[in-house]
């Protein structure tokens, strides 16, 4: 199987984020591998391991694909150290501020060129929080969409994938033939920590960089424009009481005063 895993570098969840000229300031915050994408990497490794592994020259390869600035190399390297085979990073100044439509166009072009049986994504990037890139990829690649998976079963001989989809609308059982775009929820597995051996091996693995010209798409960065972004006033410091037996009553008094009951 040829498996592509899409990973994104995002600002650390705890970092204070700011908008500069309508786009997220990514320069001045700590950046990490989107934690939901670690589950995608882990699931790709598990699928390969269940069907012969992803050793050099074996029957499965896993390629990590990412679009982002040069420093996204760090996030890509983390995925490599977990055990994937190689990586492609698309970096181009024209992609600064790219929205999901542009991102999915670039990723789809890279994936299409490489050929694939499965594309595995996280369900959401913790910065954009859109949960739309996997669906857009399925549409662009003319592949089956199996998203929000809490369980994935692959039958490589039959070219068949079955998933359990978990969303607020309930639980669905779904299946499709290769090629498929899968996104995984965080309940699916427990991502491994890169081993020392994995970290050393990752240093020798190839991260191929491409720009828009090599990818062969002319993507306009964004089809929606931010008119303004204003920090909201911080929440006023609230009231805090220590329960001395009257905490429940004080809570009710507060709700009554605020006309919430």
């Amino acid at each position: 199987m040829k498996i592509a895993v899409c990973v994104k570098q995002v600002p650390d969840s705890w970092a204070e984020k700011k908008m500069v000229n309508g786009i997220l300031d990514r320069e001045n915050v700590d950046a990490v591998l989107n934690d939901l994408d670690e589950y995608a990497v882990e699931e790709a490794l598990r699928i390969a391991e269940a069907h012969g592994g992803n050793e050099e020259g074996g029957s499965n390869t896993i390629t990590v694909i990412s679009m982002g600035p040069e420093r996204a190399t760090e996030a890509v390297r983390k995925a490599l150290s977990m055990g994937v085979n190689d990586a492609i990073l698309v970096t181009d100044p024209q992609l600064a501020g790219a929205d999901a439509l542009a991102t999915s166009a670039v990723l789809a072009a890279v994936i299409e060129k490489g050929g694939f049986d499965l594309v595995i994504c996280g369900t959401e990037s913790t910065d954009a929080r859109m949960s739309v890139v996997p669906a857009m990829l399925a549409e662009r690649l003319n592949a089956a969409q199996l998203t929000f998976a809490s369980k994935v079963t692959v039958d490589p001989a039959a070219g068949k994938v079955s998933i359990t989809r978990v969303t607020e609308a309930g639980v669905d059982e779904m299946h499709a033939q290769f090629p498929c775009v899968i996104s995984v929820v965080e309940k699916i597995n427990e991502p491994r920590y890169p081993s020392f051996k994995g970290i050393m091996a990752a240093k020798k693995k190839t991260i191929e960089s491409r720009d828009l010209a090599t990818v062969g798409v002319s993507a306009e960065a964004a089809w929606s424009l931010v008119a303004d972004a204003t920090p909201r006033p911080a929440r006023a410091t609230g009231i805090k009481v220590t329960d001395d037996g009257t905490g429940g009553e004080q809570l009710v008094a507060y709700l009554a005063e605020k006309k919430l009951i």
């Binding site: 220590t242 429940g248 004080q250």
Partner: peptide, 18 residues
């Protein structure tokens, strides 16, 4: 906006009664 430092098993039943 409003915080109670306390055991939920003590605070909530009283609040429910309240």
């Amino acid at each position: 906006d409003f915080g109670v430092v306390g055991d939920l098993f003590a605070v909530l039943p009283k609040a429910t009664e309240g």
